[in-house]
Design a protein around this nucleic acid. Structure first.
Lengths: 111, 111
DNA sequence: ACCTAATACATAATTGTCTTAGGCATAAGA
DNA sequence: TCTTATGCCTAAGACAATTATGTATTAGGT
């Protein structure tokens, strides 16, 4: 697990980009996908995820669709057009931030 | 300027590593050095920096030395032996975090 | 001589994001 | 039958950083 402090501020970026790459997804699915992509290093808590999804939806970046699976419901989230633009910008911003941090910390961020 | 949210959680790492690379420094100097290294993208606020320095000192990672410049004082901070170890670990942790984020965001963090 | 900007330390109130801790309900597996 | 997994959600509290101050010395411009 990563130090939770470093993760701060990255949640919205993660959600937007994962949705961009995987199309419509529901909350529970997002936590599992991120867990998988991060090799168990990033475990999104639902207490953080759902408020974030609601906020992004309220901002018009996400749209929802509720599907009933038997008696259980799934709320699918997908990017809107502005959401796609925002996803791209957030990722670019993150990459730029990493480059800056590389300079400050005097390390090469090359894989 | 970078989105301030992304910076969260990186302040201690920045302070420790900058001190490791530049030897003893005082608070005001650190803000300017980071500003310079980041090409004005990371502007440390004193309200965040000084409490952080005090905390790291209280944890035994930093030691201080007060020098009087005329009637003005400078409080120099330098890494202790445990501080050097911690600096190394924090940077390694950050690099690892970036690698993980690269996988999750599906981007190459190569410069 | 005066005023502003820079130097240099520091704390306090507030903000915002996240963690922790709940709550509700259905489905599957041991 | 009991635990785990699925699936949504909110609320209280912790914590780090921002914003807003506060104090004081020194340098530079007019």
């Amino acid at each position: 697990m990563h130090s939770p402090e470093l993760l701060k501020g990255t949640l919205q970026t993660i959600v937007l980009k994962v949705l961009k790459d995987h199309g419509k997804m529901y909350g529970y699915e997002i936590t599992h996908r991120v867990k998988e992509l991060s090799a168990d290093r990033i475990l999104l808590t639902e207490g953080a995820l759902y408020p974030t999804l609601h906020k992004l939806e309220a901002e018009g970046l996400l749209k929802t669709e509720i599907v009933n699976i038997g008696k259980r419901m799934r709320k699918y989230y997908a990017l809107t057009a502005p959401g796609k633009v925002e996803a791209k910008e957030r990722v670019a911003e993150f990459v730029d931030f990493i480059r800056t941090m590389g300079n400050v910390l005097n390390v090469q961020m090359t894989s």
